[in-house]
Amino acid sequence: MQAMPNKKEQEEAKREKAWDPKERWKVLQETIAWMEANLPPEQKRNRPRVPKQF
């Protein structure tokens, strides 16, 4: 078997070429949304910046 970092890079490059651009865009948007939802509250981008009582 080939050394992994090199093989991983080859595999990633191949996937990029093979991936349907529309599906890629949709999957990446969903992945970004999932990551945002899984961040701790203090690290979310759209968290409230002002205390609720104001």
Binding site: K7, R15, V27, T31
Partner: peptide
């Protein structure tokens, strides 16, 4: 056949 595979799917990219 290899130690690592990079795949696509309609729900996520998976290694």
């Amino acid at each position: 056949l290899q130690p690592v595979f990079c795949l696509t799917s309609p729900i996520a990219a998976i290694d």
